[in-house]
Each structure stands twice: as structure tokens, then as C-alpha cells.
Design a protein around this nucleic acid. Structure first.
Lengths: 334, 334
DNA sequence: CTGTTAGCGCTTTCAT
DNA sequence: ATGAAAGCGCTAACAG
């Protein structure tokens, strides 16, 4: 039925070892023999069995990627970065969606490990003790991607979310805003949601402004929750002059809520956020935001993982990539 | 180093076969024995090796999914549908991005086949003879997802793109529009781009309207190309009263180009398209579009594939799912 | 440069 | 209900 390396060997009149060498580009094969083998492969339509190879060599040239939410633009872009570098180093990728659910994340990590991936990339989301425990049962390298663990024990590539948020709010401040609301993500995630909130707080405090609970709403990073939060702010007796959203999608929701209420962005209310997804420049007004180098995060993380897999020395296993303010049209001075 | 089924067997004082039975939920094991084995597994931290299992059983419980572009909202949503059903049937997914490039698609198909996936889902894009040839070398089932082959020999799940486009243009017609432009995708893809163009043509012809080459621009499905096309239409001596875009993203680009030119949608120009990505309701005005059931396409395709993999009989291997006009605010009557 | 020979860790008859 | 043993298709010493 299926043609194996043994069939090829017979057809070419050589041993399996030689066929294996040819298939794996081992230079120790006479060109003529190589040719014979290739012809046999062609004739028989031989396709190497990666499973058998994996078992024999204890390497699968495959890395597992757990992605919290495949339909999230951020992660999709990070994944592109991962992909490109993986290709470059001849690794295949198993992308596993985890639905932003911790139990599924853990399950997926275990499945990936069972499949004997040579390394693991864990994207986004909070890294709990349970995660760390799952990671520890593995003897392949792991790098966190667009997230970090608090303990700082696991290699990771991320931006400084606190500083990114700080810079966004700072921009609002420098345009003269004093009453600045925030649409935050969950505060339960120290690496991301909480850090961005901390950045907001620090900027306000540093400017000598009070942190008013009334001006902070918790969203879920989705468009709709951005709208809701903005509607709430609009209903306040003394409404804010600017809104800082923890991510672009909520910011866009906020913009539309403001517009739907008959007000103008940025004339009446300024909006700024963090991420710089493609959509940020696909809305009117175009969104001013602090860009996160998503592609690079993926690329650098994958590069780091290749080093770890090859047991090369790495200087710095906690990479923090720079962020950058992108000024567009959603912020005006007051 | 790594603990194997043999270690567990020794620890539990049974044979490998028994451990294998326990791990695979084979009922032919005395409860007491089962318990002993589970304890040994726990104590040793045994994790089954899926590669070895795959080699021995010739099944990997893994299906390969080739996705043309992971950062495309449509495919991401289809992937969700695939994922959910795959989970339900205990299959794992290897998602492989193919960058919308044919050579990479072929390469990825081969890699997946080498990895001994139990089935293959091919998403989007044109299905050429080369694809079919690659498929034919495989002895696992394949289903096309959000695309079809012209020959109709490969199982597939898709919508009727021609009819969807027809319905969109028909809607414009029914609102009194007579000068209707189209922003098309590539005409090289018979399953999608060309089909949508054909739908546009049929609607016009049926209404007794000429198909004016001046009113058709080819884009690449991206926002920017939608903008460019719209700008071109705006520059025409006799500009169209409505634009039909082959997908939402180009439609949104068109809306913004119109707005940036100081005109209003839909007051001055109506815009309609096909897809209904999330963003369609995240723009102002919200986009009127013909919805494609993306999640369902993925789910149905995966379900079909499970049947094929289990060699169950399938009545209909060419599934066409219904589309639906979603009226929002981007079309006005003239 | 090429062949021989052990496994890799597991499933799966076939006995018992 | 359990065990023994033969592979699955390939790689990797080792020998020559």
C-alpha cells in the first residue's frame, strides 16, 4: 500500500541507510547513487513518514504554538512573525487555539507535548502557577510570546505594557487633558490588563491628578465593551475630555459610541489606545495609538526558541521590545 | 530520562499491553488493575508519546488545515468552526498558513501528508490541477473549505458565490440604482473572484443594463485597494450611484474613500458587498452586505471530514450553504 | 561511500 | 483479564 524507505532501497538496489542519507541530504553519498535513489523515489512516489522519523530521531522539527484566540488581530499578526522565522529555520508550526480559556490552554499544552514538539510558544494571556507546572513537566524549551510570567523564570518576548499605557496617557496629558477616563481590560492579568492600568495610574499621579474610580470601566477588549464604557462616560455629570482604552478595538467602539451620541472625535472627546492593529487606520478618524510590534514579537520569540532548541547560549531570555506612539487623528488638544 | 509505557508497566507490575489498554480506555481491564496502573502513571508522571502511538497505530488523530492567510478575518472565523467540531470528535488540528501563495500551499499540503494527518482541510483560494495532483498522492480524505474545484471531484463546503454577488447587486437594483460599479477580486479564481463577478454581470444583464468596463476595477481584497478603486470611480465624468465590492474589506475602504472625498455614504453613493465580517458592523455607516456563514462552513466541512475519515457513507459531498442579505446602513434608494 | 543492525515507544494480534 | 511478541518506518551508530 504505502511505499516505505525499504521499497525505495530495493528499487534502487541500495540499503535503507543510503536512502535515508539521500533523503536527509547527507553528503556522504556518491552522486551517482544519489541519482539512482532519487529516480527510485520518483518512480515509486515515495513520501517520507515524518512520524517514523520523529520516533527514530527523537525530533519532530515541529514547534507548538498556543494562541489564545485565533480571530484576534493581534495574535494573528504575532503568529505571522512566528511563522516566517519558523519557516526560515525549517520548523513546522502546530497552531492550537485555546479559546482564551485556562483549562483549554493547559490541555493544549499537554497535547502538544505528547506530540513531541521540539519547542513551545505560549502566546498572550495570564501565566498562572498551573501553566508553569505544565511547562515544568516538559523537557523542551518554552518561550512566552506577548506575555510574561511574574516570577520571571520563563523566557519571554513582550513589550512593557505599563510603559506603553503610561506613554499613551502622557500624550493626552501633554495635549492638556485633565479629565481622562480609562477603558481597561481585566485587572486579573498581571502581564497585560493590570500593567496597562498601572501605567494609566502612574501617568495621572505623576501629573498630580486624582485617579477617579468613576472614570475607570473594565471591558473585555471587545468593540462592544468599548462602546458600553464610552456610553457610560457620556452619561456622567462631568464627562471626561479624553478616553484611554486598553486596546484598539475598545477604542474604536468608544469612538463610535461618541459619534453615535452626536459628538465628535476628537473635537469633543479624544481617544487613544495601545496596539495599532490594522483597523486603527481603517476607521474615521484614524486612531492615535501606541504601537506594539506584533510581528516582531512573534519573530523574536521564535528566533529565541530556535536558539534554545539548539542549546545555544542566549544572553537575554527576557526580551522587552520597544513600543511607539503613532499620532493619527483621534486626539486633539483641549 | 523520559518515562515510557514500559516503565509504567514495571512500576505497576503488569505488562505493557495492560498499560496500553488502560491509557486507551479499553474496557477489558479489571478495575483494580486499572487503578494500579493509574497510580503508577501518576507517580512516574508518564505522558504517552503520540509519535510512537501514531507509528504503531497508523493514526494520528490529527487533521491538517491549510489556511491561505491567518490574518484574514474570514479564514479565522472558518477556522473556529473547524476547531470546535474537531474538538468535539477528539481530533487535533495542525493549522498551516500558506501566505496565499500556490507554491507554499503545495508545500504545506505535502508536509502535512508527511506528518501523517488523518485528513486534510483546504481553505480558500483557487484549486488548480497542481493542487489536485498533490491531493491525489494522498490516501487520506480531503475536503475543500470555502472554495471548490471546478471539476467537482473533491468534497467541499462553500456558498454559491455567484448567487451571493447576484443578490447583492439585485438589492442595489431594487433600490433604484442603475449605474453600479464593481470592485472585484482577481478574476483568476473561478471558485470565488470570478464567480462573484459573474453574479454582478448576471444581475445587470437581467435588468437590461450594460456591463461597462469602466465601472469594474480589480482589487486584491484589501482595504487599500478598495479605497483606490473608489477614488477612481469618483473621478469618472459620470460617477456611479452605487458600488458593489467583492468583499467587506474593500467595501470599507470604498466607504472611507468616499467620505474622505467629502461625500456621504449612502446619501451620495451606496456601498454593498459580500462576507459580513465582524468589522462590517464596526464602521459608520454600518455595512450592508451578503453574509457568508463562515463558522458553519468550517464546522460542516470538519464534520464531513470526520465522516470521510471514518469511512461512513455521505449523501452529498458538495455542500452549498445558504447566504443571507444583511441590511444595514450603507445602501440608500436613489 | 555504503550496508548491517539495533532500537525509538507504542499498538495489536494471538495466546493463555 | 492479561501477557508475549511482532512490528510500525525510520535513524543512527558501527563496521567495513
Amino acid at each position: 500500500m504505502t511505499v516505505t524507505i525499504y521499497d525505495v532501497a530495493r528499487e534502487a538496489g541500495v540499503s535503507m541507510a543510503t536512502v535515508s542519507r539521500v533523503v536527509n541530504n547527507n553528503p556522504n553519498v556518491k552522486p551517482q547513487t544519489r541519482k539512482k535513489v532519487f529516480e527510485a523515489i520518483e518512480r515509486l512516489g515515495y513520501r517520507p513518514n515524518a512520524v517514523a522519523r520523529g520516533l527514530a530521531s527523537k525530533k519532530t522539527t515541529t514547534v507548538g504554538v498556543v494562541i489564545p484566540d485565533i480571530s484576534n488581530a493581534i495574535f494573528a499578526e504575532v503568529a505571522r512573525g512566528i511563522e516566517d522565522i519558523a519557516n526560515m529555520y525549517h520548523y513546522n508550526i502546530i497552531l492550537c487555539n485555546a479559546d482564551k480559556r485556562k483549562d483549554k490552554e493547559i490541555r493544549v499544552i499537554n497535547t502538544l507535548l505528547e506530540k513531541q514538539v521540539d519547542g513551545l510558544l505560549f502566546m498572550g494571556g495570564a501565566v498562572t502557577d498551573e501553566h508553569i507546572q505544565a511547562f515544568n513537566t516538559s523537557n523542551v524549551p518554552i518561550v512566552l510570546c506577548a506575555t510574561t510570567d511574574e516570577k520571571g523564570t520563563i523566557p519571554s518576548v513582550d513589550i512593557d505594557h505599563e510603559a506603553a499605557a503610561y506613554d499613551a496617557v502622557k500624550q493626552l496629558l501633554s495635549e492638556g487633558h485633565r479629565r481622562i477616563a480609562m477603558i481597561s481590560g481585566t485587572l486579573q492579568d498581571p502581564a497585560n490588563g493590570y500593567a496597562r492600568y498601572q501605567g494609566y495610574k502612574r501617568a495621572l499621579e505623576q501629573a498630580g491628578l486624582p485617579v477617579d474610580d468613576e472614570l475607570v470601566r473594565i471591558g473585555n477588549y471587545k468593540y462592544e465593551s468599548g462602546m458600553e464604557a464610552a456610553q457610560y462616560f457620556l452619561g456622567l455629570s462631568e464627562r471626561p475630555s479624553a478616553i484611554f482604552a486598553a486596546n484598539d478595538e475598545m477604542a474604536i467602539g468608544a469612538i463610535h459610541a461618541v459619534q453615535d451620541a452626536g459628538l465628535k472625535v476628537p473635537a469633543d472627546i479624544s481617544v487613544i489606545s495601545v496596539d495599532n492593529i490594522r483597523m486603527a487606520s481603517m476607521v474615521r478618524p484614524q486612531l492615535t495609538t501606541v504601537a506594539q510590534p506584533m510581528y516582531d514579537i512573534g519573530a523574536v520569540a521564535m528566533r529565541l526558541l530556535t536558539k534554545l532548541m539548539k542549546k545555544e547560549a542566549v544572553e537575554n531570555a527576557k526580551v522587552v521590545l520597544p513600543h511607539e506612539l503613532i499620532v493619527r487623528q483621534s486626539v486633539a488638544s483641549v
